[in-house]
Write a protein that binds this DNA or RNA. Structure first.
Lengths: 209, 209
DNA sequence: CACTAAATTGCAGCGACTGCAGGAAATCCG
DNA sequence: CGGATTTCCTGCAGTCGCTGCAATTTAGTG
């Protein structure tokens, strides 16, 4: 998690060797456009490479895999979430920190929201991407479990932190899914609601439900 | 979800045509053994087919994909969970029904537990399987969301049912993961604990955590 | 101009998966 | 008995994602 995405498009100061012919962002933009128009499965890596003007081999130097394109700068976001959780005052209740941090990490400008919606619709509807997402979510869970272990006591692998982390992931996925499916909904509100549900618990105190 | 696994190894009464040379279970047993010994990624479909004594092409008539082998009769279990949830008396609180049903669906005999542990360790540690699992878990969530929609009101796609379903999935995954990682733990206890956590919620009433 | 560093590329190859068309083994019926 | 039918098995050709390797291009540097 240190020197994240160096090697390709690393914004080094001294441009010594042959300059990169394109950038991660450019490839992602072109690819997402193709995905939206042709469908994810019907867009081959060859198609993307051809559209960008690079070889297939080079595509795999910009992205580890085809599904990775849809995830964009997930690693960076994950790092920011980790930082927010770590920097929160210990006096603030755990679930408040979590809710606030997740919301803050996913606050996007109006210009980015359209692209984000495309990404989320793809991630939650294309089986190949649903599958790949699990690997990414695993990293997300590790971050949250680490935080939960500090607050609850015990190790991140213990049942408490694990349950919280994976349940929190579920809440986030539900919020993003509902937002992606319905144009007239605010992302922040959805996340807020989902995490409040999680904090309160699903048992009806009266036992009536 | 009707005629589930007919076509291959369908236990028909009148054995009319050419008899099947093996069965889904046999293939799964052999494959799991290879996975445990060689590792999942280092076992090719050719290896499995050769070990069973069928052709690679035939393997794909028994299982849709290589990762599907690890999941065994997941479809059947899912059906049983759906039935349990549907048959529960409306007077019983939602979270109690859910916890009880998940536990009941995952009650295995001592003989099956070893194989289950192998399956769960694979599913939660091999990236390819982690990825594939997401697709299966999606079906699980649909079942739980359907149940939650009935209890909470609204549609299964709404935020409430979705949050509960995905959070419940998280609790189940945490419980299974902890059980698979630690030999000295009872599966039922773990699931019970995780779902009680979920019902209660993670917020400390005093706000001290 | 030679040297070095970095990016790109083609190629050969693996492994999962699919559609198709044909072959093999069993039963049914005339 | 023998053909028709049914069901299953198989090989082949091909697509697609992905990887390692070795060569090539394109820049800056001494």
């Amino acid at each position: 998690m240190a020197e994240a995405d160096e090697g390709v498009a690393g914004h080094a100061e001294a441009a010594r060797g042959r300059p990169a012919s394109t950038s991660r962002q450019d490839v992602a933009r072109v690819a997402l456009d193709l995905f939206a128009r042709l469908g994810y499965d019907d867009t081959t890596v060859d198609d993307i490479a051809a559209a960008v003007g690079i070889s297939r081999r080079t595509f795999f130097r910009y992205f580890e895999s085809k599904p990775d394109v849809v995830w964009g700068e997930f690693d960076a976001e994950l790092g920011r979430l980790r930082d927010r959780l770590a920097e929160a005052p210990v006096s603030e209740p755990m679930m408040d920190v979590l809710r606030r941090s997740v919301i803050a990490t996913n606050r996007f400008g109006a210009g980015e929201l359209d692209e984000l919606r495309i990404r989320m619709v793809l991630i939650s509807s294309v089986p190949t991407l649903v599958a790949h997402s699990a690997v990414r979510y695993e990293e997300w869970c590790e971050v949250v479990a680490g935080f939960a272990a500090v607050r609850l006591g015990g190790r991140p692998e213990d049942l408490g932190p694990q349950t919280l982390a994976r349940a929190a992931l579920g809440a986030a996925m539900a919020a993003f899914g509902c937002w992606a499916a319905d144009e007239g909904v605010d992302l922040e509100d959805e996340v807020d609601q989902a995490f409040r549900l999680l904090a309160t618990g699903f048992a009806d105190p009266s036992g009536a439900i």
